[in-house]
Simulated scan of single mutants.
Amino acid sequence: MTTVSSDLYPVTRLAAAREATGAAGLDALLLTPGPDLRYVTGYDALPLERLTCLVLPAEGEAFMMVPRLELPAAEHSPASRLGVEFVPWDETDDPYALVAARLGATRRVGLADRMWAMQSLRLRDALPGAEQMLAGTVLRGLRMRKSPAEVAALRGAGAAIDAVHAQVPEFLRAGRTEREIGKDIADAIIAAGHATVDFVIVGSGPNGASPHHDLSDRVVREGEPVVVDIGGQMPDGYCSDSTRVYVVGEPPAEFVKYYDVLQRAQQAACDAVRPGVPCEDIDAAAREVIAAEGYGEYFIHRTGHGIGLEVHEEPYIIEGNTEPLAPGFAFSVEPGIYLPGTHGARIEDIVVCTEEGGERLNHRPRELVVV
């Protein structure tokens, strides 16, 4: 059986998801491979065109439809601890019809948020009387509030990505391309204990003004700021994400000026974290500092996003989100300032709301790092 922490993926999640399903007025959840299925069962199933689907009725016994060739993997996964019946299907079977036959009459079902359209449409045809909803509306309350084991997993992910940022100055120098630097960083992410590299952003000079730049063959030049935003998924499924800014040589004076503003904005947002504070207030705390210094129009994205089994999940730290923070909420705090065609900067830490306030899970220096 795959080694997995019973605290990280407790068997009680199945019952909690069932209760939430009934409370939401749904007859069942239908969870295909992806973060929803992994959250409820611990099973990191392969996303295939062949249907793997946990069927979790609000009333009645849960079962998992599994392609017969995937049955050994399912039986050796953490899902085997749940007492859920595995229902294998053969290549000539119609698994959607089998789901419908076993589930019976339904009025409303919740589909995994990341379910392929091909599968959702086939399920719609197999269950023509059932209104389809997003399973995320049922699971969001559970997934947002991280357990102590989940926080520990995110803490480990944060330490791993911090270890990579500690090495970045070794990779950065004038004359190297973003792509060359990015390859070294990607290798370091795996070496630091991640199972996968989710993204490597190396934005040098004007490319730093594009928040989701990625990599290019542009050569880093002396005196240029470089935005490095990196993250991956750990073997336990939980994700890392952190951004720091570096400069090769003497930084431009204008950049130094607004980088100081950015530091103060990020600190203000982190200081505002505590239970009961609306998510939008964390966004406002950062945005007010930046706007007061005349850079408001250059802060072009939300202040943060939730993180867990996905790099981006709820809650989102943005104006209009009045959801009050609660202990266990984990999210990024990452204000940015971007001057088009010139340069940009972003400082990002993962923060967990605690009973007392907020705990940062990233600990690399937030000052501008001169290489």
Rank of each mutant, 00 (worst) to 15 (best):
R346I: 13
G294Q: 00
I307C: 04
E367L: 08
R360E: 06
E348F: 09
G357N: 07
Q263L: 15
F329W: 09
I347D: 00
Y246P: 05
G358H: 12
R364G: 03
I307D: 01
I290M: 04
P340H: 14
D271M: 06
D271V: 10
F331I: 12
I318P: 01
T342L: 14
D349Y: 10
F329I: 10
D241Y: 00
A284N: 00
E348H: 15
E323I: 10
A269K: 02
R274F: 04
R287M: 05
A272Q: 02
R287L: 06
V351M: 14
T303M: 06
Y246C: 05
P278Y: 00
M234E: 05
S332I: 09
R244L: 09
N362F: 10
A285D: 00
D260H: 09
C270Y: 11
E359V: 11
A291F: 01
V333T: 14
N362W: 11
V273R: 05
E355K: 13
A284F: 05
A265W: 00
E313I: 10
R360S: 14
I337M: 08
C279R: 04
G320W: 14
G306D: 01
P340N: 13
P365T: 07
D271C: 03
H363M: 08
Y316S: 01
E254I: 04
H363C: 07
A286D: 04
D260W: 00
I347R: 11
N362S: 01
V245Q: 09
G249H: 06
Q263D: 00
P235Q: 03
L339G: 06
E367D: 15
V256N: 03
P327Q: 14
A291R: 10
G304N: 03
G320E: 06
A326K: 15
G276F: 05
D236R: 02
G276P: 01
V311F: 04
A269Y: 00
G336W: 14
K257C: 07
D283W: 06
D349R: 14
F299A: 05
D260R: 11
R244N: 04
C239W: 07
G231H: 02
K257V: 09
I230Y: 06
G308H: 05
A292Q: 06
H301D: 13
F255L: 12
I282C: 02
G328D: 09
Y259R: 08
T342C: 12
E314L: 07
E314P: 12
P252N: 14
E297Q: 13
R287G: 01
V369F: 08
S242W: 02
F255T: 02
L339K: 13
E323K: 11
E314Y: 12
I282R: 05
E319V: 09
I337S: 02
G336Y: 12
N362Y: 06
S242E: 14
H363N: 12
R287S: 08
P235A: 02
V351S: 09
Q267M: 10
C270R: 15
G320C: 03
A330P: 04
Y238W: 15
I347C: 04
S240L: 05
T322M: 09
E367Q: 13
A326S: 05
N321H: 04
A330T: 15
T243Y: 08
A265Q: 05
P275T: 03
G358E: 07
V248E: 12
E313V: 03
I282A: 08
V261S: 10
Y238E: 01
E314S: 12
P315D: 00
P315H: 11
Y316E: 15
D271A: 15
Y238N: 03
L339D: 07
P335Y: 13
T322F: 10
L262K: 11
R364N: 11
H363F: 12
